[in-house]
Design a binder for these strands. Structure first.
Lengths: 340, 340
DNA sequence: CTTGTTTGTGAAACCGCTTACATAATTTCT
DNA sequence: AGAAATTATGTAAGCGGTTTCACAAACAAG
């Protein structure tokens, strides 16, 4: 199959120069006379030469690869982030090694070690499920950061060589709740899934908005869904159960578009009119918002912008520059058909 | 940042053996006495040694990496495939280098070359957008296959060192159309997007089923949507336009769940009852099916099974075994709320 | 026409690990 | 007990590049 590969040595012979010279034109480095450069390039062309990436990596101590970790690359929101990052990094000449860890700490640690072993130039953690606020579990991130820069997308952690790019989930949620309240809606159900970094921020935003309005956030106004995120019907069941228990909420504020979609499903099932009798607001402004009727109002956390800044920051760090450790972007509620 | 890394040489000194011996325990190879093995392992443990992947790659000529190419990793269906593959390959000790090419041939070629340059052990093309039946564009795949095994998921190409794992799209679509016809539905709109390998197979299945029933597949029964797949509203507009032209179809057979979702959106907009007045069938049985009400009937092409077989086949090929060049799995229509 | 700089090139060391081959130590067999 | 076979370990030659350093050629200045 693999015929004996042509090496830099073959080129050097063919072009009648030393391997050092070949290496020089390869790296576009300093001083090579135009004549020799052409000779070498011609030899490369003719023999279809491709430098051996491993040898190169060994010498340069990098293979221009970034590790991307996500819990689940098929989650519509995470998938989008991965896609943006991949495109941006490719634009910078980097490739992406993808690691899906699921939601287990053990997998996170293993994947992180693996990426370090493979000598990636940097590691990006996509999604806040990696970072827990008051949790010693974050140690593995610090360990990794001792080796390569670690970028956090939608999570924040103050540690050396760790850079965080986040959207202001707290404020977004606060404002969304506030908006509902200002419309006279007081019985708001906060429907959430993840107790991760951003999950907690969102929750805090909701609670504070309610508190500021003198409303309760006691039993029933918070529902936590544990289970497979894709299981929309099961999530709808949960809401139906709550409703049937007698808690007839006027709005669902979801920490996630998928959860919001399930609220819509629940509403259709019970014949509850959206948005007249029930407002629903999702989070992430993912493609799912367009899949339902009426279309889902959702909080846009400007993922593409976050990814752009993350990439720029990472490139800066790799270039040896001082870079901001934390960057926060404001989110924005996109109003569509599920709010009045 | 990166303190001088500890190498095999340091370990050899610390354990009082030669580097060859260290390398041996590293690779779990042949004959190392238990005593020495322990000494070495201890030294490694103590100094936190990690073998240099580049040097390893240079020596072994592999870094246990598989390249995955997809048009768009954020497409819900492709994302799912990528996820399955990543998990399966990780289980086999391989990592995944992800390349999103968009829908341009130029990008496909560039990504392919890049993966070859990075010396992946194999390349997987996810989705049929890579392969066109009667198209010279496939040349780049053959070139790549001269270097490493190329696996096609949901596409087929008969060439050396190229392996195809596909679902039987032709038959699935034939059967789906047939089922609608048997229910007395004769005006079926085939709504599709891609003219790729599987796209053509699906179309052929639809046409043949119609022909077999003596129905026409002329103007109006085939609608091709060109544009951003995520733009559900725009796709719905197209259908609305067709409808308003006077073509009141009774069913939409979509080549894709996203297209089917847009048909549902169109139906709601026009007040057409699904499934009473309009049947809708999607393709891929993706998570989107659960997001709408009624839930979308869709053709399941058993993606997970395909991925499992693809991975197994690839591992076989890499292990030097003779493996089947083409594997086809039957699909299955999952009936939900959008069909009677 | 020297002398002092550039500029272009080659020789060789090195990156960290694998492995063929040689050798030493041990065991097995007659 | 000595030869043969086996097992354990070390030496050194790659793998295919990069890069330091030395040196020769070309050019500028005195």
């Amino acid at each position: 199959m693999k015929e004996h590969a042509v090496t830099i040595y073959d080129i050097s012979k063919q072009a009648g120069v030393s391997i050092a010279t070949v290496s020089r034109v390869l790296n576009g480095s300093d001083n090579v006379s135009e004549a020799t450069r052409q000779k070498v390039l011609k030899a490369m062309e003719e023999s279809g030469y491709t430098p051996n990436a491993f040898a190169r990596g060994l010498g340069l101590n990098t293979m221009k690869t970034i590790g991307i970790m996500a819990a689940d690359s098929s989650d519509p929101y995470l998938a989008k982030g991965i896609y943006f990052l991949e495109q941006l990094l490719r634009g910078e000449g980097y490739d992406c090694l993808l690691c899906c860890t699921g939601y287990s700490l053990k997998n996170r640690i293993a994947s992180m070690e693996l990426l370090i072993t493979k000598k990636v130039d940097g590691i990006i953690l996509v999604g806040s499920n990696f970072v827990y606020e008051d949790d010693a579990d974050n140690k593995y991130i610090l360990d990794a950061a001792a080796q390569v820069p670690v970028m956090l997308l939608n999570a924040a952690l103050d540690a050396p060589n760790v850079y965080s790019i986040t959207s202001d989930d707290y404020t977004s949620m606060y404002n969304a709740a506030n908006m509902l309240i200002s419309e006279g809606i007081t019985d708001i159900l906060y429907f959430f899934n993840s107790r991760s970094y951003s999950g907690r921020r969102k929750e805090a935003g909701f609670r504070d908005a309610m508190k500021a309005a003198g409303l309760s956030t006691g039993d029933g106004t918070l529902q936590f869904y544990r289970g497979n995120r894709e299981d929309v019907p099961a999530m709808a069941d949960l809401l139906e159960h709550v409703w049937d228990q007698g808690h007839h909420f006027e709005a669902v504020l979801a920490s996630d578009d998928t959860l919001a979609i399930s609220a819509l499903k629940f509403a259709v099932r019970k014949g509850i009119k959206v948005p007249e009798e029930l407002s629903v607001i999702g989070y992430n402004n993912s493609m799912l918002t367009a899949c339902v009727t009426p279309e889902l109002s959702s909080i846009d956390n400007r993922q593409e912008t976050l990814c752009q800044h993350l990439t720029a920051t990472l490139m800066g760090v790799l270039g040896g520059n001082e870079m901001p450790k934390q960057t926060v972007f404001a989110g924005e509620l996109i109003r569509r058909g599920t709010t009045r």
